[in-house]
């Protein structure tokens, strides 16, 4: 046998490394005392200090978390109930399912446009409500996709036994079905939250004059001029991401051990 070429490994490694250049640069320069990207002015946390003192960023962050959490919780309820309901054949199922998937299929700009004109038509106040409604449209399919695969392999015998022994439908759901589905609901919610937290295009069209999200705030800031504060923000987001991914990995692992 010919010795296996190392070329594939090297090629893939180089491409991956290139994709990480912007991130690595941002992390390194977030600790750079100098404002310039060409010189190293020594280690410093001054950009983090400036970032923490920036009230607008903080407010936008809070708004983003609020929108993300609210959309995720409401979407999780709708998506989980639907995934359970679709175990039986439902009327107009083959029409409603694709419609509910539209928001993760069509370009975001088209969705954003549709929400803007429709919410204006309804005369809804632009801000929290419009953001949550718009984000829910794409959070629901992400959570549904995760939960429905789990529901398909769900054992219904314990639920039926509990119901026969006199447990009410809610008790049966909370003691048997929910614990079984929880890991898939949570992993769906993690994905949905990340999508909501990162959304620029749809949010752009539904934010209110007094209600900004973090990505929109960063976007307007980057448009006017980039300061190393952005690097500090990138590094912090990286940290939060690592923690979140670690947590979701842990949830899955615990489930596997049970």
């Amino acid at each position: 046998m010919k010795k296996k070429s190392r070329f594939p490994l090297i090629y893939v490694a180089i491409i991956t490394a290139i994709l990480y250049v912007p991130i690595v640069v941002a992390v390194i320069f977030s600790f750079n005392d100098s404002r310039l990207y060409t010189t190293w002015g020594g280690f410093s946390l001054r950009w983090y200090e400036i970032l923490f003192k920036d009230e607008n960023i903080f407010k936008a962050l809070l708004n983003s978390v609020l929108v993300g959490v609210t959309s995720c919780i409401l979407s999780a309820v709708i998506a989980t109930a639907a995934a359970l309901g679709f175990r039986k054949k439902q009327p107009a199922e083959e029409i409603v399912k694709p419609i509910s998937m539209i928001p993760i299929m069509v370009p975001e700009i088209i969705l954003g446009m549709a929400f803007l004109v429709f919410f204006r038509f309804l005369n809804l106040p632009f801000g929290f409500i419009t953001l949550v409604l718009a984000h829910m449209t794409f959070c629901i399919p992400y959570i549904y996709l995760q939960v429905s695969t789990r529901v398909a392999s769900l054992d219904i015998a314990p639920t039926e036994a509990a119901r026969m022994l006199g447990a009410g439908p809610f008790k049966a759901f909370f003691t048997i079905t929910l614990p079984d589905l929880l890991p898939s609901i949570l992993s769906g919610m993690f994905i949905a939250f990340a999508m909501s937290f990162d959304d620029v295009i749809i949010s752009m069209f539904v934010v209110g004059p007094r209600f900004n999200t973090l990505p929109i705030k960063i976007y307007t800031q980057v448009k006017t001029g980039i300061t190393p504060e952005i690097n500090a923000l990138c590094t912090l987001m990286l940290l939060v991401t690592v923690i979140c991914l670690g947590a979701s990995r842990l949830v899955k692992k615990n489930k596997a051990q049970n």
Binding site: V21, P22, I23, Y37, A194, D198, I226, I230, C234, M237
Partner: peptide, 26 residues
Amino acid sequence: FFAALTFPFWINSIVRIASIIVLLRT
């Protein structure tokens, strides 16, 4: 490599693009 390729998606796209802007400018 699969994990490495999906990871950047979890970081805000505008933040990553800001870094590219700075690199291209510098």
